[in-house]
Design a binder for these strands. Structure first.
Length: 276
DNA sequence: AGCCAGGGTCTGC
DNA sequence: GCAGACCATGGC
């Protein structure tokens, strides 16, 4: 059974393609198929309406509404953020990106695997990770494997992922989460600076990966990951630093700008699209 | 062939 | 504190 929901200014395509989740694939008919947690979904947006395929009102209300963050007042957030010229330009290009309320463990793993890597390959590694160690789902696809399941693996077991040097980082994360040295529930609620330090105990988790895990895995919207694109973009747009008033939603501002400068060739002058 | 990809670690000044 | 080599893999 399908379920329809009026989505206001929400942009499904930008939200799913802006690089915050690696589990959604666009189908030839324009819909998207993906898995979150242990649930598979096909979804499309048409004329402002979100169409959830093969789901129920019940599942929408208890899961997908929260996952797509449809109850947060993004109108108010973007009204504030768009007082900044750069965010306004980016927003006009990308539309209303939501921060997905993804699982913390999945977010951590995803961005450990993202380091020095490109998005298509990250998607492939995560797909193989789920196929090899996750749970097969009724409606097709595979759930994301638990930390306990991965902690029981050896490095050789993970060789099927072809994740390269990142495999050992994944194992260390699985072990520390399983042991409780890293508590992702706490990272979602507690002091942000303490959460950063906790995550950076993990081998292979530096400033950027920690920030991504916090923003995209723990919904810490004040966390601002700085990768090479954001570094260049900020040098160009914010030579004096990001305006203070953006900070409470700095992660959202960052994400809109990230998607904008990557997708729109005119967003940055050529000398800022390559190193410094 | 060589460079790059949503970086991090380790070494050497 | 900071630059530079190195890390696996795959696409262009």
């Amino acid at each position: 059974m399908d379920f329809l929901y009026p989505a206001g200014r929400f942009s499904l395509s930008s939200t799913l393609e802006c690089g915050q989740s690696f589990r959604w694939k666009k189908n030839t008919d324009g819909s998207y198929s993906g898995v979150a947690g242990c649930r598979a979904l096909r979804i499309r947006q048409e004329a402002g309406l979100l169409c959830f395929y093969d789901t129920t009102k019940q599942e929408f209300e208890t899961f997908w509404k929260n996952y797509f963050d449809l109850e947060t007042d993004y109108d108010a957030i973007y009204r504030c953020l768009c007082r900044d010229e750069t965010v306004k330009k980016a927003y006009d290009y990308t539309g209303e990106i939501h921060i997905l309320r993804q699982n913390g463990w999945e977010g951590l793993c995803s961005f450990i695997l993202s380091q020095n890597n490109n998005i298509p390959r990250i998607m492939g590694i995560i797909e193989r990770l789920c196929e090899a160690f996750g749970q097969r789902l009724d409606r097709g696809g595979y759930g994301f494997p638990s930390a306990e399941r991965l902690a029981a693996c050896s490095l050789e077991n993970l060789s099927v992922l072809r994740a390269g040097f990142r495999a050992k980082y994944l194992l260390d994360a699985a072990q520390k989460v399983t042991m409780g040295a890293v508590d992702l529930e706490l990272a979602a609620k507690g002091d942000l600076e303490e959460a950063r330090q906790m995550l950076r105990q993990i081998n292979g988790v530096g400033p950027k990966v920690a920030e991504c895990a916090l923003l995209f895995g723990c919904y810490r919207v004040e966390a601002v990951p700085v990768d090479v694109w954001i570094k260049r973009a900020f040098q160009y747009f914010y030579p004096e630093g990001m305006p203070q008033f953006l900070r409470p939603y700095g992660g959202i501002a960052q994400q809109v700008i990230f998607h904008y400068v990557r997708c729109c060739k005119e967003a940055l002058p050529a000398e800022y699209r390559k190193s410094v």
